[in-house]
Amino acid sequence: MRLRIGHMYPDLMNLYGDRGNVIALARRLQWRGIEAEIVGIAAGDAAALGDFDLLFMGGGQDREQAIVCRDLEARREDLRRAMEADVVLLAVCGGYQLLGHYYRMPDGREIPGLGILDLHTEAGPTRMIGNAACRSEYLPEPGTLVGFENHGGRTYLGPGCAPLATVLSGHGNNGEDGGEGAVYRNVFGTYLHGSLLPKNPHFADLLLGRALARRGAGTMGDPLDDSLEWRAHRVALGLAGVDGREA
């Protein structure tokens, strides 16, 4: 078994150490004896997104994101087909926002997104920054996700997707409705950096499990020793002001 992981725009969408997510996915496959092929997808590359098992996209600076936006426009249909074929996608922060219908600037202008997730984002007056924790029904016990959020946009979900998690501490999607991230089929969006997956191993395994299931692999084998990861997870819960037991 061999999984193909596409890292979308590793050179442009690389703002907050999000490449740690790709490192985590690759290592966790390797530790299970499953081969991982990591492919960087740059702007202008001819890549068939449906040929991947798992895609990752992080966040970038405005200048870089504008370039990505133009490139994604040409990939819109390819990406949509891949999503309908249940290719697994994790998008963080800026990448998450790009999957929605549009981003509304402070002056009211709307930058169109891909419209893959039924959500839109509005620029806010302040940035929402800090350690954050939430709980997701998609995850096995303890179900908590921990990370660091740093975003000015407020994201509002439509009926076509569900929040990934409920905020325990921090702002989540918009600081209003208590939701964090979004899920549609095998597409996951979130505001959490950290990097997210290394200290949320259950989420990493959820993504890998779905990618493997899609390829017909029934089980992931013996669980890994994640004691170090959970120690870091508990420290991050504490920093977000959440008691591990109450979570």
Binding site: Y16, G17, D18, R19, G130, S195
Partner: peptide, 9 residues
Amino acid sequence: GRDISWLWD
């Protein structure tokens, strides 16, 4: 810096 994500870079 309260965010330590940069360790991954």
